[in-house]
């Protein structure tokens, strides 16, 4: 049976005349990797700031491991690590000193701190540059140190607010692997990112918010299936395709759209009502031979755009 780590009920926050978060509720189980998605200005950062204890909410209930958030805030903060979107480290302290200082702020004693700092340095891959100043680091190294400062005290809940912005593929991969490792070690992860493929591959549960309200939430795979309404097939034929073929294909039940690009046929069809066999029969009947077939299913980005729209946000 899963244990609830964080439960949020009816969260509400208003800034002057703008409602940033409006009646947001969600539940995160222990060892979940929980993805928080939303376009710019959706209320993600406000939600994160509230559950990290940085800003006060106007309304709503928060329980962490069943404990009242406000009454146990000191202990909750010591059991939580926030990796902010911006790199917030001290440039004039070495990597090791940064970790030591954050460790001391989290209240861990000297002996444990020393041990944790060494382990964290190894975990974030900065042991070799432990005594160097972050100003000499690359963007990826700084990001890793930024994460290190939030996990040096071994928190049970780790909140990562877009931790992979502006870094190379290697650092990004290292960070993703580290998050998986932290999760395997027992940490509950709350993750926000604009990179949908990251969230799709990492998170087992999702919450999509827009304009302060919850738009959708649930298990990642279930959501992908739920919104996988259309499938797209790319079929390569042996010769240049005539418009007549498309006309015939459009008559098949379930086909939504058919388009031609020389020898390639692109067919968009409803996932549940459509039969690939009918398409292939028509192709053969009209004296074409297919050379290859590729299928593209809806990914998280398609679902996200479907739910939040394609209008540009500020």
């Amino acid at each position: 049976m899963s244990i609830t780590m964080l439960e949020v009920q009816g969260l509400h926050k208003k800034y002057q005349n703008t409602v940033a978060v409006d009646d947001v509720s969600f539940k995160i189980d222990k060892q979940d990797i929980f993805g928080l998605l939303g376009p710019n200005g959706a209320g993600k950062s406000t939600t994160i700031s509230i559950i990290s204890g940085i800003i006060h909410r106007d309304k709503g209930e928060i329980l962490v491991e069943g404990k009242n958030f406000d009454k146990n805030l000191k202990d909750i903060k010591r059991n939580m690590g926030l990796v902010p979107q911006d790199i917030i480290i001290f440039e004039d302290l070495t990597a090791k000193e940064n970790l030591e200082y954050f460790g001391s702020l989290y209240g861990i004693n000297n002996k444990t701190r020393k041990h944790n700092v060494d382990q964290t340095l190894e975990f974030i891959g900065l042991t070799d540059v432990a005594n160097k100043f972050p100003k000499t680091f690359s963007g990826g190294m700084k990001r890793r140190l930024n994460i290190g400062c939030a996990i040096v005290h071994r928190p049970q809940i780790i909140i990562l607010d877009e931790p992979t912005v502006g870094i190379d593929a290697q650092s990004r991969n290292h960070i993703m692997e580290s998050i998986r490792k932290l999760n395997q070690q027992g940490a509950t992860i709350i993750y926000t990112s604009h990179y949908m493929e990251e969230i799709q591959s990492l998170c087992n549960r999702l919450l999509i918010i827009d304009k302060g309200k919850v738009v959708e939430s649930g298990n990642t795979n279930e959501l992908l299936l739920k919104y996988n309404l259309n499938e797209t097939y790319l079929i390569m034929l042996d010769k240049k395709i005539q418009n007549e073929l498309c006309k015939q294909l459009n008559e098949i039940i379930g086909v939504v759209k058919c388009s031609i690009n020389e020898k390639v046929l692109e067919i968009e069809a409803q996932a549940n009502t459509f039969s690939l066999k009918h398409i292939l029969d028509v192709i053969e009947r009209t004296n074409y031979k297919f050379l290859s077939i590729n299928m593209k299913r809806n990914n998280l980005e398609d679902i996200f755009l479907h739910l939040t729209g394609k209008t540009l946000r500020d």
């Binding site: 990290s52 000191k74 902010p84 917030i88 702020l105």
Partner: peptide, 17 residues
Amino acid sequence: GRKQERLLSVTNRLLPI
């Protein structure tokens, strides 16, 4: 600014800092 936010995510009491 942002530094204060990060510190507030660590501790409730900024006075000692």
